[in-house]
Design a protein around this nucleic acid. Structure first.
Lengths: 310, 310
DNA sequence: ACGCTCCATACGCTTACTGATATCAGGTCA
DNA sequence: TGACCTGATATCAGTAAGCGTATGGAGCGT
């Protein structure tokens, strides 16, 4: 690609003149006087090395060379304008692509609302949503295969990544309706020591799993896991059939099953944190927009609930 | 199409930097120092309104906006370079299209050589060759449906058209080998008065037809046309079978048939002129090139045969 | 801590593009 | 022939882009 010194204004003048075939009218359309237009065309012709217009008496005409250049000039101008507009749209976050990883346990709680909010605000953005456990999310953020992660129990410190807590959920006990404790409003964790547990496989979310078993250990027992399921809905279904009890983030209440009761846990200090994660120095403005969408205060509401975490 | 002030040099710098992802290397490839390159990119980013590169430590990267702009910039640059090259080619007459009309009687004489010469010199040019009588050629030149005409007996004066005589051909008598005059080297026109004539229909070339009959009239007789044929080859074939004699431009000798003899005519001043015709103020350089190709002196031969006509 | 790489910034200079006004030249038409 | 429209030319000035050299500052490795 050799050096081509060529102001686009000249191409623009050329295209307009090719359309008008009249120097005066073209100059008026360009908002300049006629002599400058003559100069523009002349300069362009000098660069091409041949006449682009024939100024014979009786009217201005395109020469064959001009006819040849016209489509290239036109497509360059429009293509460039479009490309510029597209780049601006992407740059301002009105368009583009955002790849989001999310923990399975959030599919029913924070994720739907977040997506709805974001899609409303940025309809032009293509969202790539993929379910993945916390650790793979961290890895995916590092190798740039996702842009934002929605995960539980963020690691305290991670190089080049930022985290922000979105939600701090208490735990609830998941009990079959027939369970003796289901009549109570609050359940002490230790009271579940003898019940068989239904949990997610540890691999599906090691952080949350370890936290749950850690809570049990703190309450003085080791949970006896009789059954595992890969989704919370299945867990609830299994609990409903009386296969056992479970311990889950409060967001799970969204799953409404008749034979299942959700009860508050003591000690109530046990909480699981949901966080968004992203790369430091992220250049994609969509990430910033998503962070705004995920924040507890919607942008369009003036009030400040002062619940923002950092 | 709004005003977009955007030097192509910046786009070029952008594309090169996007390929190199290294300011120093890109600047070297562009043949400038590094600071100017930084300025170029910065100016372009200012115009776009967003960063196109991420200059994080560890390397330069394209931002999503830059990624969006890159293909548009690339295609604009290459498209423009191609368009410019094509326009130059057309402008210099190395490419393009040339529409040529030719009289039927030239199909075997000047036309083949002319086309061969021109094709050799300008292989990139597309030639549109169409057979048409003289008068339609004049009309076609006026309404711009052909660019060059090859015709016989050009009108003495014609508005906005130029003519140049290419060839001044004597006439020859076309005789069957068995004809009593075939043994002579030269034939007096009047001697053909009693022979039936084979001619082309007048409509196929009124100028030449009228000249032939005019010659006969000048020699004191009116040719008795017993047969007409639309091509000179057919005329010769008919002559060969003894159906009659004919009068034709000397170029017809190219048609070699055993039973046909071509003999010089007296008076030898009778000649038919072949001319090229083109529009005054023609902007297509191919026309000029064709005129050069049609001229008696080939450009690459230093010798001058001084036969050029005007 | 030092030096190295890499990019950004500051400064000064030159170029040339861009625009306007005024004027000229060629053609057409009344 | 003179009014008029066409586009070209001449001249001038303002602006901005382009370059180079010199320098600054951040990050990284030894």
């Amino acid at each position: 690609m050799e050096r081509l010194e060529l102001p686009l204004s000249q191409l623009h003048a050329f295209v307009v003149l090719a359309e008008e075939l009249h120097f005066g009218h073209a100059a008026a359309r360009l908002g300049i006087a006629q002599p400058p237009l003559s100069q523009q065309i002349r300069r362009l012709e000098d660069k091409v090395g041949h006449a682009l217009f024939s100024r014979a008496s009786g009217g201005v005409t395109l020469t064959p060379a001009g006819h040849e250049l016209l489509p290239a000039a036109r497509s360059a101008l429009t293509g460039l304008a479009d490309g510029l507009a597209a780049a601006r749209a992407v740059g301002s976050g009105q368009a583009g692509r955002l790849r989001i990883g999310f923990a399975a346990s959030l599919a029913l709680t924070v994720l739907p609302g977040l997506l709805r909010t974001f899609r409303q605000r940025f309809p032009g953005v293509h969202l790539d949503i993929r379910e993945m456990p916390t650790a793979p999310q961290i890895a995916a953020l590092h190798d740039r295969s996702i842009d934002v992660g929605l995960l539980r129990e963020p690691p305290a410190t991670e190089e080049e990544l930022c985290f922000r807590t979105v939600l701090s959920e208490p735990f609830v006990a998941v009990l079959p309706a027939a369970h003796p404790l289901a009549g109570r409003r609050t359940v002490h964790l230790a009271e579940l020591a003898d019940s068989p547990f239904v949990l997610l496989p540890r691999a599906a979310g090691p952080g949350l799993h370890d936290q749950i078993t850690g809570l049990c250990t703190a309450a003085g027992f080791t949970p006896r896991t009789t059954q595992r399921a890969v989704e919370w809905q299945t867990v609830c279904a299994l609990v409903e059939t009386g296969l056992g009890v479970s311990l889950a983030p409060a967001g799970i209440r969204r799953i409404r099953l008749k034979g299942v009761a959700f009860r508050r846990i003591e000690p109530s200090t046990a909480r699981t944190r949901v966080a968004v994660a992203w790369r430091e120095n992220e250049q994609n403005p969509l990430v910033t927009h998503l962070l705004a969408a995920v924040s507890p205060e919607p942008v369009d509401r003036p009030q400040r609930s002062s619940r923002s975490g950092r």
